[in-house]
Amino acid sequence: MLWAAVLLVAASAARAQNIRGRYVSRAQEDGTVYHTFPETLFEHPEAGDLTFDITYKSGQEQPLATINFTYEMERMTPADSVRFVSGDAVLAGRTEKIYVEPGKKRWKHRYGFRTEVAPLYRFFDERRTPEVWLYAGGETYRFRVKRSAWHAYAPVGFRIFEMIRANE
């Protein structure tokens, strides 16, 4: 009985903190840095899963967020640019390489790009079906969203950026 009570308290605490464990923020002299932990919401039959995280520093003249993402390919496939699309919210930009390294079977690619923060306030809409278009190695790769993962994460992402906007 005691264990059941303890587990119940722990479960309700976990629910109440549903965005707490999904991001970190740090106040600094010239603004606050927000960072969402990596999430794997998109997949492609060849390129596998795409994992991304978002970093944003408020209080800057140009409100730009950095989106870093990771994908794997059988061969080295350098990315040129990327588009994250969710309805009319488009996050796009030329990619900047962070690193590319071989794994056991596939090449791991880590890239990032900077984008305006305004579309991020609309991006995490649970009703939309977002996609990621990656332009790499002269080809276009369309990553589709994992529906269940999107339904679970979109409200969290929305709330995180709602909080950021409230603190701007």
Partner: peptide, 8 residues
């Protein structure tokens, strides 16, 4: 001083 990048 300062930081604008975060890695995990």
């Amino acid at each position: 001083a300062g930081s604008s990048k975060v890695g995990t």
